[in-house]
C-alpha cells in the first residue's frame, strides 16, 4: 500500500502529533507584531557568545531543549533530529547537535527547511522507525548577512523588494502518539526556476514555487483553499505574497485566507524591513509560536503550512545563474 493520494501528496495514517514546540527570537523580532507569541527573546544578537555563528547554534539548541521540555520528554527519548540552517555546511545545526547528542539528519532547503523537516520527521514516525523526533531550523541576521551579502557596517542601500533575515529558531517535538495538532498530509516541492536573477527579490523567485506546490496539493486532495482555516506561506514577504495571489488567480484559485510568515513577523513601516522577514528562522519561529499556539487554543483547526525557500548561492549567482526556489507543504489539524 502506498501512502499517497493523487499524483504526489503524502498521507500519514498514523497522524504524527506535535507534542511540544518552542520559539526563540532576536531583539528586532521581539519588537514586531508577534512579540507576545514568542517563548524567549535573546536581546542583543550575540546571545552571550563570541561569534554570530555560535549564537545561531545556541538558538537551535535553546529551541530544541525548550520543545523537549514542553513535551515532558528527555533528550534520550528523541530518536532523531531533522533540521538545518542557512549557513554553509549547516554549521549552526551541526554544532548544536554536537552537544545535544541526538541521532541527526541535516537538511538544507534554504528557508523551506522547517516544512522539509516536518515532512522528513513525519515520514520517519509513520514508518515506525521511532517514537519521537525533533524538527527544527534557525537563521541569524548577522551570520546570514556576512555569508550571503555584505559586512554589517558596510554602508549600502537596500531596495524596497529586499527582505530582512530573521534572527530566531523554532523547534517542535513530533511524536507517534499525542493530543495533536497532527500532521496529516504533505506535498514535497519541486525545484522551480522562474528565471529571476535579482538577489534582492527573493519573494519573486519563490512565489512560483509556492503556487506550484499549492496547486499540486489542492489537485491531489481535491480541495480548495476555503477548506482550510488559514494557508501560511513561509517567507514570501509582502511582495511575494501579492505575486502568489496573482499567480493563483491566473490558475482560477482564490485564497483570501493566505498569510505569510515573513509578512507577519515585522511591521515594515516602523521596523524598516522593506518587503518583510526571511530566513529559515522566520517560518520556524512563527509556526512554533503564533500558528501552533492558535491551534492549541483551537482558534485554528486545519491549516496548510508551506515554507518557501530560495535556493540561492552567491557563487552561482555570480556565474549568471537565476535563482531556483522550492516550497514544501504540510497540512496540520487538531
Amino acid at each position: 500500500m502506498t501512502k499517497t493520494i493523487g499524483k504526489r501528496t503524502l498521507i500519514f495514517p498514523s497522524r504524527p502529533s506535535v507534542n511540544g514546540f518552542y520559539s526563540v527570537v532576536g531583539e528586532k523580532e521581539a519588537q514586531g507584531p508577534l512579540k507576545d507569541w514568542f517563548d524567549l527573546t535573546i536581546g542583543e544578537g550575540h546571545f552571550g557568545e563570541d561569534s554570530w555563528e555560535k549564537a545561531e547554534s545556541k538558538l537551535i539548541e535553546t529551541a530544541t531543549m525548550g520543545a523537549i521540555e514542553q513535551s515532558k520528554l528527555s533528550l534520550t527519548d528523541i530518536n532523531c533530529f531533522f533540521g538545518g540552517d542557512l549557513l554553509n555546511q549547516c554549521i549552526s545545526a551541526n554544532y548544536a547537535l554536537r552537544s545535544l547528542q541526538i541521532p541527526f539528519l541535516g537538511l538544507y532547503g534554504a528557508c523551506s527547511t522547517m516544512a522539509e523537516s516536518l515532512i522528513a520527521g513525519s515520514v520517519f514516525l509513520d514508518g515506525e522507525f521511532g517514537k519521537n523526533v525533533i524538527c527544527s531550523t534557525s537563521s541569524h541576521f548577522c551570520s546570514a548577512e556576512r555569508q550571503f551579502r555584505f559586512p554589517l557596517e558596510y554602508g549600502g542601500q537596500r531596495p524596497p523588494t529586499a527582505q530582512w533575515t530573521v534572527t530566531g529558531s523554532g523547534a517542535c517535538v513530533l511524536s507517534k502518539t499525542g493530543e495533536g495538532p497532527y500532521i496529516t498530509h504533505a506535498t514535497i516541492g519541486k525545484v522551480i526556476d522562474a528565471g529571476i536573477t535579482d538577489l534582492n527579490n527573493m519573494g519573486a523567485a519563490m512565489a512560483p514555487a509556492a503556487c506550484h506546490t499549492l496547486c499540486a496539493f489542492l489537485e491531489d486532495t481535491n480541495t480548495t483553499p476555503q477548506d482550510y482555516d488559514k494557508i501560511f506561506t513561509g517567507d514570501l514577504g509582502s511582495i511575494g505574497k501579492d505575486l502568489l495571489r496573482q499567480l493563483l488567480s491566473d490558475n482560477a484559485i482564490t485564497a483570501e485566507n493566505l498569510e505569510d510568515c515573513g509578512d507577519l513577523i515585522f511591521d515594515s513601516e516602523t521596523q524598516d524591513t522593506h518587503a518583510g522577514g526571511s530566513g529559515c528562522g522566520c517560518s520556524a519561529s512563527v509556526l512554533n509560536s503564533y500558528i501552533l499556539k492558535q491551534m492549541k487554543q483551537k482558534k485554528l483547526k486545519k491549516i496548510l503550512f508551506m515554507a518557501t525557500g530560495a535556493l540561492m548561492s552567491p557563487t552561482s549567482s555570480l556565474q549568471g545563474e537565476s535563482i531556483p526556489a522550492i516550497a514544501h507543504l504540510v497540512q496540520i489539524e487538531i
Binding site: 531596495p159 524596497p160 512560483p208 506550484h212 511582495i239 491566473d250
Partner: peptide
C-alpha cells in the same frame, strides 16, 4: 499549475516598486 509563463511573470515582476531614485 497549468497557467504559468516565465516571460509574462518576469514582466510582471519588473513592474514592481523600484527604489525611490529621486529621493535617493
Amino acid at each position: 499549475m497549468q497557467h504559468f509563463s516565465k516571460k509574462e511573470y518576469q514582466k510582471q515582476v519588473s513592474k514592481q516598486e523600484k527604489s525611490p531614485w529621486i529621493k535617493n
